[in-house]
């Protein structure tokens, strides 16, 4: 288990470093997703399976998809002949090695470790839910308000404003 932690931590740090030094935004986002997946493995092996699932579903599944949508909407064309660059081996050999490491660890964990060995230290979703909805109920409501503000802010800031110059405003501008 300790070896798994070290390997996964190395994968996380290396892929984060590549993500922040990459020039292509889509490649950087894919490396960032790889980093989030490896952090989810770490969550799983330190005894938080619910948080590991949330990390994959919400972070890697929802937030990163938002990023990718925006990058594709902006249509940032860095270089031409990108298609030719994707086919060269050095573009895909590093992410393939890192992702294959995670896959090997995943298969190893599923084969070798029985779930009964680890039930003593796992904090499951039931305990998390009970704590969240009794002790931190006020914080849950505040975060609901925060999400509402995020929805309204995203809608208001993201919509395209048509530039309508009113006649009255034009007249006042001339004066």
């Amino acid at each position: 288990m300790n070896t798994i932690f070290y390997i996964t931590a190395t994968v996380a740090i290396v892929s984060s470093l590549i993500a922040i030094t990459n020039r292509n935004a889509i490649h950087a986002l894919l490396y960032l997703i790889l980093s989030l997946l490896s952090i989810s493995v770490i969550f799983y092996i330190i005894g938080a399976p619910f948080i590991a699932a949330l990390e994959v579903i919400v972070y890697a599944g929802a937030i990163m998809v938002l990023f990718i949508f925006v990058v594709m909407m902006l249509n940032i064309s860095l270089e031409e002949e990108q298609e030719n660059k994707w086919l060269t081996p050095r573009m895909w050999i590093v992410p393939s090695i890192l992702a294959a490491l995670l896959l090997i660890i995943f298969i190893y964990v599923l084969k070798e470790f029985k779930y009964e060995q680890t039930t003593a230290e796992i904090i499951g979703p039931k305990q998390v839910g009970i704590t969240m909805f009794t002790k931190y109920l006020l914080a849950v409501e505040i975060s609901a308000i925060l999400l509402l503000a995020g929805i309204i802010g995203g809608y208001h800031l993201g919509k395209q404003k048509k530039k309508v110059i009113h006649r009255f405003l034009e007249k006042t501008k001339k004066i």
Binding site: I63, S143, L146, Y155
Partner: peptide
Amino acid sequence: VMFIFILTVSAAEVSVGLA
């Protein structure tokens, strides 16, 4: 529980920031 709250804050921040 704190992780879930940080996730909420992060989602709101990303939506407003990307807009």
